[in-house]
């Protein structure tokens, strides 16, 4: 199975007064296509920093980063945006949809960024909305959707560019337990069906059963979670 994400010895430090705070301490992580990895840990442990590095939103001090077998260490801002547009799917904590766009348009926007539009794009958007169970809601704007529906649109949007790697930031934090579990089940299903590598950062340990592997982040160090 091919590797969706490979982090080797990645270190990130932040300035903190006179010293530097180590957010990631020589972290290594491999995620295969079709595999879903959960990263848990207390706030401030560095799990969001891990997501930012894997999402090319933050350049690490040292270490090596590969996405879908391609070395993407130390790319400039523009090239990093290109990789995010073509190879990455990001799902945010609050779904972060654009207020003026309908559910379908949220997905079409992704294709627009890559210069694609028209009937095939629309068809793919509808197919993905169908896959997350939102066929009926395609023409609704975010304020007309429930929290769970918004999160599903966010997941469909992240899949729009057929990414090699899905990065999920606290997908259940704004949802009750039942809806949160449904969202995580959906993520596990798309990971399997679409052979995408998925990293989910969460502090909700009740959702770990749906994942293949769970890692724990403590003080910038990553280790397999001992149940």
């Amino acid at each position: 199975m091919s590797t969706a994400l490979s982090l080797s010895d990645v270190t990130v430090t932040y300035p903190d007064g006179d010293r530097r705070l180590t957010a990631l301490d020589a972290v290594s992580l491999d995620v295969a296509a079709g595999e879903m990895v959960a990263v848990v840990g207390p706030s401030g442990s560095g799990k969001s920093t891990l997501l930012a590095v894997a999402g090319l939103l933050l350049t690490p001090d040292s270490g090596r980063l590969e996405i879908a077998g391609q070395d993407v260490t130390g790319l400039g801002r523009g090239r990093a945006a290109d990789v995010r547009r073509t190879s990455l799917g990001l799902v945010f904590q609050q779904s972060n949809l654009i207020a003026s766009l309908t559910a379908r348009e949220q997905l079409e926007m992704v294709a627009r960024l890559a210069g694609r539009h028209g009937a095939p794009v629309r068809a793919r958007a509808d197919e993905l909305l169908d896959a997350v169970g939102l066929t009926e809601a395609a023409d609704r704007r975010p304020h007309q959707l429930s929290g769970g529906q918004r999160q599903r649109v966010g997941i469909a949007r992240a899949l729009m560019n057929d990414p090699a790697l899905l990065l999920i930031d606290e997908p259940t934090s704004a949802l009750d337990h039942e809806r949160g579990a449904a969202v995580v089940d959906l993520l596990a299903r798309v990971t399997r069906e679409r052979a995408v590598g998925t990293v989910m950062v969460t502090h909700d340990r009740t959702t770990l059963d749906a994942t293949h592997r769970a890692m724990e982040m403590v003080d910038g160090r990553l280790a397999a979670l001992v149940p």
Partner: peptide, 16 residues
């Protein structure tokens, strides 16, 4: 600004 940050995060270039 929050919308712009999301758009950039999903791959929009500043020029676009």
């Amino acid at each position: 600004t929050p919308d712009l940050a999301v758009l950039k995060a999903i791959g929009a270039r500043t020029g676009y």
